[in-house]
Design a protein around this nucleic acid. Structure first.
Lengths: 187, 187, 187, 187
DNA sequence: CATGAATGAGAGTTCATTCAT
DNA sequence: CATGAATGAACTCTCATTCAT
């Protein structure tokens, strides 16, 4: 139970707060309990009624993608850094997100074949394009490495993250996989 | 308390048939709907009562591992081929299995932290060892590539397979990822 | 995943009605069929969905104790009577409750080793203390008879009630047993 | 798993052994797990197939009464002792049986209204008659105490045994109750 | 607009009972 | 006669979704 509408009906003004509380609760529980955490648990954790959850997010997927969007927003902010090594930091944060959240991975796994208008990779491409170009211009990455190659590499790292036996192994194996793919990015 | 056995009771002779039918149904539904497909759906698809499923496979994991074992049996048979290029064929079939079955991937994903005595990677290693040695002896793979590297590569391909948008993309991306990792295996 | 609420949804206002209906149904079925009557039967008899039962009473014991509480509430009301012969009436009603409800007895029987914080006998003691004191002050009971002795006597009567062959025998034998133990209570 | 038919079909000769094994298993499990222990568990413990259990005891009640009969047989043997104090020993053993077996008590409780031809009290009476007469002749019990009074007393002790919170309390309270009722038996 | 209870469809599991071998 | 698997009904419990207030 966090912030948000505990007592009575706080009126329209509460909508934005509620949405934020729901996103925060969902992010936490998706990470902890996985993508299939009960929606009722999310509403409870957010301190709102279940109806509110449904008003803001008609389906589990809508909620999950909204959380996903928060991840993307964070990454986008990182990507706006003009420094040539921002690319490296963006990728590093992406990989961390995969390692951190059970649900973030499961969402993608579970979404397979379900979501037709999945914008994940397009957004990924948009985020990566700028930093990658600046890194390439600074001679930090090979000229033949495009956004698609980076996206594929990230998906490969997902695979390692989801199949690790425990957290320690996950960090170690993800590092190894990352090193393997980034080797090919060197100029 | 009930009336029981209204339909026919085919007797103990049906046991083997039922087991086979359950494995087939499970294999199909794990592939289609993923690891968390309802057990009741598997029993229905197999044309048996739910009690029969529970008799043969007391838990979802028992069933999943039985299906898993079929995969491993198939791969083991391939691995017994003494030809130097058997390694390549074993890896190819493994990759196909990942592409074919959502559940085969999810089983490994789901096993994370759940199954303590999970032998998946050990079995993987056992299967790969012989073919890999013979391939290396024949000069088909680099001398510094060990079983661990191959296993990590396979997990990376899992990631690509599970995150693909559709079957066509999956096949294409998996091929690209496989090519990426096998490039490093060349002598 | 489901379609839900096909029938009417009477809204939150129904909560109190539902709770009452559940208590009534439970009281009836516990009496008729015993403590282990299916919860689904109670929900059906109350005319509510099973989810409603679970919302109000998360466990069988919660429900049973709620019914039990109704009994205790009734007895407590009787015990507040200041007349010296209230003790006699309280005991008489207790004995009736034992005779009336299979479940009331079985609850106590079933609670054995299951409920660690079972307050049944404490409540029993609280109810009996006042009336017993007033009866003793009025010279209606022997001075050496304490609440424990009364509680033990009641448990003995439970035994007779639960082992009687039919309702008639039960009434007769319970009366005999009650007479046997109350003889010792005389001053 | 105890004795009896473990391997193949031992033929007709096994019937008596099986019956004995079933009774022993049932006695043990009724005492341990209560009257509602799964019949399959009894068959397993006896080391026989479930069909055998059904052949010998068509219903749970038949089995339970057969076990009950074993208790009566033991008591009957005790009752054949001509010594004047055999009565005391018979009663003591009866009380022990109540304390020892959850199922023995539950059987009686559960049988209420179910079994029409319940012979329990008649048998009880038969067992008690001889020893009681000899005890009375020896001046060990009051002349106005009949078999019915003893049976009622035993049922009262059942009540105490079934409502005790734990084994220690059970032994203590049963002793108190027994002392209470036997006080009235003194000459 | 928010609340939170109602709803009911199953999922998982257990077992009594039957019956082919 | 014994075996032990098949059968399926019934039970408990969980949620996604709706909707009166």
């Amino acid at each position: 139970m966090t912030l948000a509408a505990r007592g009575g009906n706080r009126g329209p003004a509460a909508a934005a707060d509620n949405r934020r509380a729901l996103l925060r609760a969902a992010r936490e529980l998706f990470a902890d309990k996985g993508y299939n955490v009960p929606l009722s648990a999310i509403a409870r954790e957010a301190g709102v009624g279940q109806g509110v959850l449904y008003r803001h997010f008609p389906s589990r997927l809508d909620l999950a993608f909204a959380v996903f969007e928060e991840n993307f927003a964070e990454l986008t902010a990182l990507a706006e850094d003009e420094a040539p090594d921002a690319f490296e930091r963006v990728v590093a944060r992406m990989v961390e997100l995969m390692v951190e959240s059970v649900g973030f991975v499961e969402l993608v796994v579970g979404a397979r074949g379900v979501v037709t208008d999945y914008q994940g990779d397009r957004q990924l491409a948009e985020i990566l394009t700028g930093p990658l170009e600046r890194a390439r211009a600074a001679g930090l990455t090979a000229p033949d490495i495009g956004v698609e190659a980076v996206a594929l590499a990230l998906r490969m790292i997902y695979g390692v993250a989801t199949t690790a036996r425990d957290d320690d192994q996950r960090r170690a194996d993800v590092a190894a996989a990352l090193s393997l793919v980034t080797t090919r990015w060197r100029p």
